[in-house]
Nucleic acid binder design. Structure first.
Lengths: 165, 165
DNA sequence: TTAATTGCGGATATAATTTATCCGTGATAG
DNA sequence: CTATCACGGATAAATTATATCCGCAATTAA
């Protein structure tokens, strides 16, 4: 029951992009450099986000990624599901239909297993909580809580990137 | 982000044991046979439940497992955490402290990362939902919803086990 | 048009984890 | 004393996660 750390990378990338002006984009290499993570592997995560319509791709020189839609319409859930896939984390293998006391007819098991239902209900609550958190909220919170010195360094780093293009 | 299927096995085992009289116990082999799952591997899961005080062990011939406490004091969360461990499913690697814009002093990052906080909050909601579901509820629901024919077969199977000892 | 840059997708290699089994030890009922 | 059973360690196989590389298509600047 562990979430891939590429999810963390993806959320950080999206949050960074969400705070940028709409006409600015960053390449996979830029994003990897900014976050100090391996470029080729991060690129895979960005590809998934792009395939799922969360990021927009600009190819060619000066190309890269930007947010495909408004930051308030992208939730943490969108990003998590894009990277992890939207299969349920609990897979019911219907073991109630195994063993010596099981019934032959699968018709007897029309309703879902109660145990699986309980697990799925909890997962839905988790998803709903992640759905609530939009990129806008994260961007706003960062502006308030982050160290002003890092904000400044980030702005300078972005300017450098932008000017060198 | 996938939960081990031994969690499913463990919950089914605990639910079965929760429905039994207090002085009855089932061996790992019995539980494996009942659920149609491999015995040596299920035994590992039962050991974990035993170590975490969810199941009580009776060793020697006629030994096995029974619930260590009342069914209404054991929740799905207890079982899930016993098998999966109680580490958070989201591991924050503090990537905000990596890259060219990070600050040298780790004092600047006293508050937890906002992204991690959001993920952890969702996980806490998930845990709270699982905490609500006690084995009592599952046992009661099974009595109402399960096919009477399977209940009868189960009773007969249990009687066989009990009489042969 | 050409050269350079960038994302895309497939193939592949390595690391880590999960899944599964086995065996020796200690406990206990008959 | 013997057969049964849980326990814990060791180990092996299978699956998944992590990471990299390369050729291709798209795009831009010179």
């Amino acid at each position: 029951m562990k979430i891939s750390n590429t999810v963390e990378w993806a959320i950080h990338c999206c949050t960074l992009l969400a705070g940028l002006p709409e006409d600015v984009n960053l390449s996979a290499k830029d994003l990897a450099e900014y976050h100090g993570v391996p470029h080729p592997y991060l690129a895979k995560a960005l590809q998934m986000l792009s395939n799922d319509g969360i990021l927009k791709t600009i190819s060619g020189p000066k190309g890269g990624y930007r947010l495909a839609s408004k930051p308030d319409s992208v939730s943490l859930l969108d990003i998590v599901l894009s990277i992890e896939g939207n299969d349920s984390c609990f897979g019911c293998e219907e073991i109630r239909q195994q063993g010596p006391t099981a019934l032959k007819r699968s018709l007897s098991y029309k309703r879902p297993c109660l145990i699986a239902s309980a697990m799925w209900k909890a997962e839905n609550v988790w998803r709903a909580e992640l759905e609530k958190v939009k990129l806008t909220h994260l961007v706003d919170q960062v502006k308030v809580e982050a160290d002003p010195r890092q904000m400044k360094k980030t702005q300078e780093w972005l300017n450098d990137k932008y000017n060198s293009k």
